[in-house]
């Protein structure tokens, strides 16, 4: 039994090592923006409280095994010891208290995450930007409706600025996740969604899809580049000046199932914005009216599966 105890102590120290040592590599424990930081604080708070419970269980467990293991004398053996109301009430109430201690910050954080992140103390509020994200099999498409540009499999944001990602799905569901900037949200074909993220500093953050979407799923990785305001503006201008325009037929090619490399376009067909807005409006309408509407944009769903002949090599090629 001592072996078991040693192993458990080993496991715990491993846990501590990870929590204190190499957090840089552990994206979730290395928050780089206010959203991720709120979630990080909640995670640490829950680790502390649950580790307390685990420690109590472990101490009692080791105590009873050492004290009442068969090899010891039978002092204290009491086969009819069948209960103790006071003790039982105690170990019902303590978890109740812990649940309350967890529930209050959970609910607070949930409501806080619903809106844009508040500016840090002493900082002036910066205008939020909006980016429309579409997941298609198996790539991420980013459209900047205010700038009229589109990128694929990477997205550039200004540092210290709240970014509202509107999330759409072309066919299967995916989940939009950039662990260092904040938790994920699904992209769903029948329901546009939103996710607020913000980066504290200039940096390069890895994102990926967290919901399985078929053969090319493992390649659904993208980068979020955070730049200074000046660099961000320069980047947009550069895209507008140097990249090709996206035509509707090119866009439809892009939607076909495949893994692709990163790319950027100086403009995209305006009807895509219209479609996105219509879906958003319908969503808002549904939230208020609670009446489902059945007419969906059939055209966007009517893509045939001709592109399915991708080989597995191409999955790995497209980063």
């Amino acid at each position: 039994m001592k072996k078991l105890a040693m192993k458990l102590i080993g496991a715990c120290s491993l846990l501590l090592l990870f929590l204190t040592g190499c957090t840089n590599k552990i994206a979730v424990l290395n928050p780089q923006g206010p959203i991720a930081r709120q979630q990080y604080h909640l995670i640490i708070w829950s680790v502390i409280l649950t580790a307390f419970i685990f420690a109590v269980v472990l101490i009692i467990f080791i105590y009873v095994l050492v004290k009442f293991g068969r090899k010891n004398n039978h002092a204290g053996y009491d086969p009819n010891n069948h209960g103790n109301t006071k003790l039982e009430i105690t170990w019902t109430l303590i978890p109740v208290i812990i649940c309350i201690l967890l529930a209050v910050p959970t609910v607070k954080t949930l409501f806080a995450l619903d809106g844009p992140p508040k500016p840090a103390e002493g900082m002036s509020k910066k205008e939020a930007i909006t980016i429309n994200v579409t997941s298609a099999d198996w790539k991420w498409i980013f459209r900047y409706p205010d700038e009229g540009i589109q990128t694929v499999n990477y997205v550039v944001i200004p540092e210290d600025t709240p970014v509202k990602f509107n999330l759409f799905a072309h066919s299967s569901m995916n989940s939009f996740w950039v662990p260092e900037l904040g938790g994920q949200q699904y992209t769903m074909p029948d329901m546009p969604m939103k996710l607020w993220l913000q980066a504290d500093h200039v940096g390069n953050y890895l994102g990926r899809s967290a919901n399985f979407s078929g053969r090319g799923f493992a390649g659904m990785q993208f980068h979020v580049l955070s730049k200074t305001d000046a660099d961000y503006k320069a980047w947009i201008q550069n895209i507008k000046d140097t990249k090709p325009a996206l035509t509707m037929s090119k866009y439809e090619d892009l939607l076909k199932p495949s893994n692709v490399k990163t790319s950027a376009f100086s403009s995209y067909p305006k009807e895509l914005d219209k479609k996105d807005n219509k879906a958003m409006k319908k969503m808002n309408h549904m939230e208020h009216m609670d009446i489902p509407e059945n007419h969906m944009d059939l055209k966007s769903q009517d893509n045939d599966m001709d592109g399915m002949d991708m080989s597995d090599d191409s999955t790995k090629g497209g980063k």
Binding site: F68, Y77, D78, N81
Partner: peptide
């Protein structure tokens, strides 16, 4: 977690004062 915790503690106290 509350009823589950109750069960865990009851098992621990079943071991207590036993001959394991």
């Amino acid at each position: 977690a509350i009823p589950t915790g109750v069960k865990i503690f009851n098992w621990l106290f079943t071991l207590n004062k036993g001959r394991i």
